[in-house]
């Protein structure tokens, strides 16, 4: 008997769960990360301080601890009744946003200062300068580290399984509870993750190639 074929619906649900939480928290991480990177290079000191605090706090907190906060503190104080999926996505997205922020900031720093000076001297505001001139040129440098960050995010999503989110790694626990041999179970789980991470690599490879042409 085959552990995968016999339990395919659960495996499929887990796989879809992993893909969904990865997708949702990637979007959260990307949006927040770019936003916070903008704050960190802003000319307004309070915004810079907020950005720095954001990164310092989230990057240096163990992800499991963030999950604990997200699942046991956030619903108590802010949003009662939020689904585990959303809470998990938030924890993962916020955590990863600090890494995205730093990757984006390093990209911003590779764009020559003269580009921003030229933009400012034709009258662009800070946010226009960032959006229209600096970030598009930073993208090329940011793509390779971002791809690593999102692959790490995919694997980190396994922690959500411990917080009753349906995802791939949770399937492993289910199977071992049902008494299957552990080795084949792990191989299937690993293959499942490989599909997601290879898809991310491929996606970024495509984006990288397109950026190369555009310059």
């Amino acid at each position: 008997m085959n552990v995968l074929l016999d339990n395919f619906p659960e495996f499929r649900d887990g796989f879809i769960g992993t893909v969904s939480i990865t997708a949702v928290s990637s979007v959260i991480a990307l949006v927040l990360g770019v936003l916070v990177a903008g704050l960190r290079v802003s000319p307004v000191p309070p915004l810079r301080i907020f950005g720095t605090a954001w990164v310092t706090l989230l990057r240096n907190t163990p992800l499991t601890l963030l999950f604990l906060v997200s699942f046991f503190v956030v619903p108590e104080i802010f949003f009662p009744g939020m689904s585990p999926f959303l809470l998990g996505s938030l924890a993962l997205g916020f955590y990863t946003s600090s890494f995205v922020c730093e990757a984006v900031r390093s990209g911003i720093n590779t764009v020559p200062l003269g580009q921003a000076e030229a933009a400012r001297s034709i009258g662009m505001t800070f946010s226009q300068t960032l959006r229209i001139v600096v970030l598009p040129q930073a993208t090329r440098t940011v793509i390779p580290p971002l791809s690593s960050i999102f692959i790490a995010l995919t694997k980190n999503s396994a922690i959500a399984g411990a917080f009753s989110v349906t995802e791939l790694f949770g399937w492993q626990k289910l199977m071992s509870d049902r008494g299957y041999a552990i080795a084949p179970v792990f191989i299937w789980v690993a293959l499942g993750y490989l599909v997601v991470t290879f898809a991310i690599s491929g996606l970024f490879w495509l984006v990288e190639r397109r950026m190369e042409v555009a310059r």
Partner: peptide, 11 residues
């Protein structure tokens, strides 16, 4: 403003 190093938007 016209700069020594031109600073045209490269993209």
């Amino acid at each position: 403003m016209v700069f020594q190093s031109f600073n045209l938007f490269a993209h």
